[in-house]
Amino acid sequence: MNSKSYIGISLVILVFGIIFIPKIIDRITNDEVVKNDRLNIGRELPKSDELSYIELYGENKKVPDFQFVNQNGDTISNKDYLGKVYVVEFFFTTCPSICPIMNKNLVEVEKELGKNEDFGIVSISIDPVHDTPEVLKEYAENYEIDNPNWNFLTGDKEDIYTLANKGFGIFANTDETVPGGFAHSGLFALIDREGYVRSRLDNYGNPIIYYKGSIERGVSVLEGEEEPQIDILIEDLRKLL
């Protein structure tokens, strides 16, 4: 390659640097690359007041079929909640850590929305051997829960774990190394009237998928800590209702 070719290439690189590099730096500084390019190429973000569907293999994800027994000994399935907007959680009654926070939060949600007959809650025990209908009934009474649309469910352990881990993708398992002997994520799933899993979008236009239920509503958090999500869950339930 002769000297003229080297000069020509150098001029092209110089022009590119003068024109485009300042623009790239400016976009990175304003966080536009992350917000607009990485995640949202070729699609328009939903409006802020819209809730997203959760796509799985190209289809909107529905709540998996389930059928268990509630605290009153009645058989309850997902079909009983069609036409209602509801929250699903996985918990166990002897949990010494996050479950009391989760259900305290859900009591707050119920106080806000419980008068609406189209609102419900499904609490599924991951310790069905201990959590019989009688135990669940006493647990519900201790929380002063009398909403007929809030069912505490128990049933076959394998079916429950399949529903949690494979159906919802909400982790639940036995673990003797943690307090209470069971490990779970403390997440809430939001289900619409047609049985679809719904979610609000984060700042980058992605669905948050599930709502963090294990952080107490109204508590102050330090910088870098996770924020409570009960208020946004209530907001999104109101949108669907």
Rank of each mutant, 00 (worst) to 15 (best):
D159V: 05
L11D: 10
I101E: 08
E32M: 05
C99P: 09
T29R: 10
V219T: 09
V221R: 07
N149C: 12
Q71F: 02
G8E: 04
I25L: 15
R27H: 14
V197D: 02
N2T: 12
Y204D: 15
L163M: 07
L56H: 15
K35Y: 01
P128T: 09
T162W: 01
A189W: 00
Q71T: 06
G180E: 14
K104V: 12
K84Q: 12
G180W: 12
V34R: 13
E176K: 12
N151D: 14
F91N: 09
Y204Q: 12
R217V: 10
S48I: 12
N70W: 06
G8N: 11
S220G: 11
E138Y: 02
S48H: 06
L136S: 08
I145W: 00
L14Q: 03
M102V: 11
E44R: 08
L51S: 08
Y6P: 13
Y204C: 06
Y86V: 00
I19T: 09
N206S: 09
D131I: 09
Y86E: 05
Y211Q: 02
V87R: 01
P100H: 05
E134T: 11
F188S: 06
D159Y: 02
S125D: 08
K166Q: 14
S52R: 09
P228T: 10
I25R: 10
I145N: 03
I145R: 00
K79E: 15
T75E: 12
N151H: 14
I124M: 02
T162S: 14
Y210C: 02
D202T: 02
I76D: 06
G213S: 02
D231H: 06
L163V: 07
E108T: 13
I121F: 05
N70K: 05
D175H: 06
I170C: 05
F66D: 12
G120R: 05
L113E: 09
I101M: 09
T132V: 05
Y210P: 08
I232V: 14
N2W: 03
L136M: 07
T75V: 13
E32A: 00
I101A: 07
K84C: 07
F182V: 08
G224I: 03
N142P: 02
N203I: 12
E227Q: 14
N60F: 05
T93D: 10
G218A: 10
L106E: 09
D236M: 02
S125A: 06
E141F: 00
